[in-house]
Amino acid sequence: MNTLENIRSFWPRDQVFDFLIPDMPPDLDLTHGVILYLEGISVSFGGFKAVDDLNLYIQNGELRCIIGPNGAGKTTIMDIITGKTSPDTGSAWFGQRINLLKMNEPEIARSGIGRKFQKPTVFENHTVHDNLELAMVGNKQVWSTLTAKLNSVQQGNIEAVLETIGLKEKITARAGSLSHGQKQWLEIGMLLMQNPKLLLVDEPVAGMTQQETERTAELLTDLAGTRSVVVVEHDMEFVRSIAQEVTVLHQGRVLAEGRMDEVQNNQEVIEVYLGEENAPH
């Protein structure tokens, strides 16, 4: 009897070993309407404070723009949310239940956060189709990846996304042969294939033509509502065209937050940021 209990204590029936726990993040819990909590986050690199006691909340379905001069800590925040950098202090929660600081990049990605890099990053040696296929939501374990086959529903998804990002004719083209703007869209398309609840988009319109920029603005505003979108951008024209809420960062802190016109009239903001930004970037 005693032995049995000993065994039980070693192997309780209501628990399993870590490696047996299915590799699935807990469900996203949005009961309070807030999708992302960043509280008291600080990071420093070799004495330089990149982010300093930052607090940021993103509502579910919101489209938020983050602006700020170079070195304000915009990219670092993205790195923290996606698990690339771990902060010195602070907490980061995705919904009510998912602690981002305890997860690595792929786990965070699979839990529903998609990220577009500043420089368009696609798999240049793959076709547009394969880029999307790789990004597609689903089981991403090694064995499942090895045996994966596209079914018609998934093929349909890919085509739908191709439609959305306007690359339908390019389906068999090498991603490396696309123009800069097309690569940006392909990357956004890859995020869409992941079906994320929160999109982090770093400078989406850099290097785009006027027309492309307008279409991107349309795309992002369409996405908001069903999912939350956080856009980091330098192009003030673009920000004005899409922004509902704007957060201004300066030296790793939130300088101001609010609607675009409020922020634009904030004296501090004008001093540190808008003043210089009015000149062509």
Partner: peptide, 28 residues
């Protein structure tokens, strides 16, 4: 030729991207 193979070249070319679309690069 499998999707894992595509993932391999994807990792070779853009390791970070592969990670941020949810693959455990180290496992592959």
């Amino acid at each position: 030729n499998s999707r894992l193979g595509k993932l391999c070249t994807a990792i070779r070319d853009e390791e970070d991207r592969a990670r941020f679309i949810g693959y455990r690069v180290e496992d592959a």
